[in-house]
Design a protein around this nucleic acid. Structure first.
Length: 180
DNA sequence: CCCTGATTCGC
DNA sequence: GCGAATCAGG
């Protein structure tokens, strides 16, 4: 990979938009690391943006709308075990993509695009609820932190996935969802 | 432990 | 010029 004009332009744009170095790197695709982005930014003299920008990423939207969704059947990433050091996303990317193919239309919550994550940004600790059309570059995952142990979804999507309206009472007593 | 940008320095 | 390794910090 090299810093083509297009890459640099995109780098400038995303960086000035307030994306973090790792986010920009993810956006530029595999082959461009966070370090590469930071290094380039300094060489370009782009360091220090206006203010602290959107440094910290506020995760997860406050649970609002909810619908009895058809929960996508997802294979939870193997806990521990074969995780790849560094880029954990790669360890379960295959499963995540399968989900996307099975339930491409599941869109119960609106998470701003800026808060969603790409496959490369997805971490094992993030909600992998698919959002958007997997056949387009806009495809993202919810990305919110998943507080349900090593579960695959954030609090809201776990509710959506495991609490069908008709079964709410019983599900309420469920401490932690079971993953096949 | 998750993440952030900054810096160094061999290539 | 490039970016991995490392550092300092939240």
């Amino acid at each position: 990979m090299s810093w083509t004009e297009e890459r640099v332009d995109l780098l400038r744009k995303l960086w000035s938009d307030g994306l973090s170095a790792s986010q920009v790197a993810a956006e530029l695709g595999p082959g461009i690391t966070r370090n590469a982005v930071i290094g380039k930014i300094h060489r370009l003299g782009l360091a220090e943006r206006a203010k602290t920008a959107a440094a910290q990423r506020p995760r997860a939207a406050k649970g609002t709308a909810r619908q009895p969704a058809t929960a996508p059947v997802v294979a939870a990433p193997r806990a521990g075990g074969h995780a790849v050091h560094g880029n954990v996303a790669l360890a379960f990317a295959p499963q995540a993509m399968v989900v996307a193919r099975v339930a491409p239309e599941a869109e119960e919550v609106v998470i701003p695009m800026s808060e969603r994550v790409t496959l490369m940004e997805l971490r094992e600790s993030m909600c992998r609820w698919p959002m958007g059309d997997p056949t387009t570059p806009d495809f993202r995952f919810c990305g919110a932190k998943s507080p349900i142990g090593a579960g695959p979804y954030c609090a809201h999507h776990a509710r959506v996935a495991y609490q069908p309206a008709q079964d709410r009472r019983r599900a309420r007593d469920l401490k932690a969802p079971r993953f096949a």
